[in-house]
């Protein structure tokens, strides 16, 4: 989605604010996903995560 040329200043500001909020929300969702996968790994493998055959 691009900032359209024919937007008024007000609309442009609103558009940028919404885009920014959406970006933040996606960022949070990705961070939560990372945390979830980390938590799954630790919960499933536990301290054995450091024990491995070389």
């Amino acid at each position: 989605m691009t900032v359209e040329q024919n937007m008024t200043e007000q609309q442009r500001a609103d558009f940028i604010k919404r885009r920014r909020n959406r970006s933040i929300a996606i960022g949070i969702a990705l961070a939560v996903l990372v945390a979830i996968f980390y938590a799954i790994t630790i919960a499933k493998v536990g301290p054995d995560v450091l024990v491995r055959d070389l």
Partner: peptide, 14 residues
């Protein structure tokens, strides 16, 4: 409406 072209707010998606 013009609001669609701007994309929704986060609350709308929720």
């Amino acid at each position: 409406t013009s609001s669609v072209h701007m994309g929704g707010r986060v609350e709308d998606y929720l």
